[in-house]
Structure formats: C-alpha cells, structure tokens
Design a protein around this nucleic acid. Sequence first.
DNA 1: AAGACGGGCAACCGCCAAAGA
DNA 2: TTCTTTGGCGGTTGCCCGTCT
Length: 263
Amino acid sequence: MVRAPCCEKMGLKKGPWTTEEDHILISYIKNYGHENWRALPKQAGLLRCGKSCRLRWTNYLRPDIKRGNFSREEEENIIQLHEMLGNRWSAIAARLPGRTDNEIKNVWHTHLKKRLKQRESNPEINLQVTNCDSNAPRQSESSSLNNVPSNQGFESPTYASMSPQPSSSEFSSATDVSIATIDQNNETNIKDEQIELWETYPEIDEGFLAISYDELQAQFPFNSIEMGEPAGNSHGNSNIDDGMDFWYNLFIGAGGSPELSEF
DNA sequence: AAGACGGGCAACCGCCAAAGA
DNA sequence: TTCTTTGGCGGTTGCCCGTCT
C-alpha cells in the first residue's frame, strides 16, 4: 500500500486550528455532514487533510463533547475501566459520555498514572467509586480506604447508581460495562452487565445545528472566511474578533457547554 | 524582570482493519 | 484473491503557559 503524502508536502496546513477554520468545519458538517473525510476539506475550502479535520471534529468541535475538568467520579471510572480494558482508550471513552479517547488518554498520562503509582506506594489508598458525590469537594486520597491491591483479587466493583440523580436538565443512560473480577485462582473473569450511568449533562438544543450559516454570518461576521484569507488575518478588526470570541466561547470556550440560549 | 523548567493538552504520525473495486 | 482507499486507534510530539529560580 502506498503511503499518502504528508499534509505539508501536499501544501496543506498543519498545527493548531484557528477559529475561522473551526467555523468553516462546523458550518460544513452542519450543512453536509461528514460522509467522506478525505473529500471534506477540499469541498469545505479548508487547507487541511481529512484526517486532521476528523480529529478536530471528534476531539474538539462535536457539540456533544463535555469539556472542563474531569470529576473525581469520572477519574475513578477511568481507572477502573483501564484496569479492565487496558489502553483501549476508545473503548473507555465509549463508556464515558461526552469524553473523547484523546482527552482520556491525556488525563491518564498526566494525572491518573501518577495517582496509581502513589497508590501502589501507599496501599492504604483505595478506589472508591460508589456513592461519591461529584459536586462535593474532592476527598483526599487517603480518606477512602478499604483498598485491595489489584493483583490480590477484589470484589466486583460497583458502578451502578452513581449520584447525583438527574434533574430535568440532565439525562441518564444505561450502559453496558464489562465487570472484571479476579477469582481465587488469580484468573480474570469478565462479564458484561448493563448499568445505569447518571451523568450531569447539559441538554443540547439541536436547534443550534439548524441555524443557517447565513444567520451565523449575519450575527457574527467572519469576512475573512468569505474572502478566503489565510487564518490569523482577522487580528485588529474588533468586529470580527468579537464575533470570533463569541463563536469560540459558544462552542469551545472554557467550561464549554454551549450557551444555546444566545440563539 | 527574565530565563529555565515542567506540566498539560491539542495535534500529528504510523499502523491496522474493514470495505469496496 | 489482491489491491486501494478510508476511517479509526493508540503512541508520541511539540507548543503554550504557569511556576520556579
């Protein structure tokens, strides 16, 4: 199989995405979907390879992505799931609604791996998953005990009935998980069970996807897009900057739940 | 105040598998 | 059956920014 030439050799752009590019990608996918990632950038007028577009969309621009810090609950889930599934980040991500494999991978390498090492060096520290309140202040590591080292066998971890219970602005989802246990012969048994995950999750008004590109343009002008200017040329134009700031905050910004009421 | 350093994270790279010709 | 294309995945890189000296 002949390897496709890299983006740079094809004259395609690499590196961080600009808000204009994000806007173009979102608008295009909104209008036409993403059936063919390879063709998408050309049709959308983006100087990116399809792979880069797909990654940007799946890891950052998708409207159902839950941004912001991981809750203690989510972190513990990742640890447990990693114990069962290993480095299968996409499988882990599939069980954490709103989180991407890349995000989980990053959080694993930057935080959780270290925490596990600490736990190994301090066996008093335990994984406490059940009945933890994600809204409560984080407990110190040593405050949750009952640890059983992973290689000595453990009872089936309990994932069900995570609090808080959903309010009207939240939704619940039933999820299949593989429950791993290690028996007395030190053999791992995995069985699939359906559990209820209660996730605090903003309702997503699908209406935001129905807003037309023209409406967006009218509300938040991006002249540089229509002129086909290279990214970054908008600096110095406060109207455009304001529009982009709003767009950025709307879809991407810190804490990132879309402020759909703005529409 | 400025340079060094390290952590966090977005993005890229390379490989693999599935699907289709 | 073989080859090509495409999407997906996990590992890795490199930039940015905050902290330290």
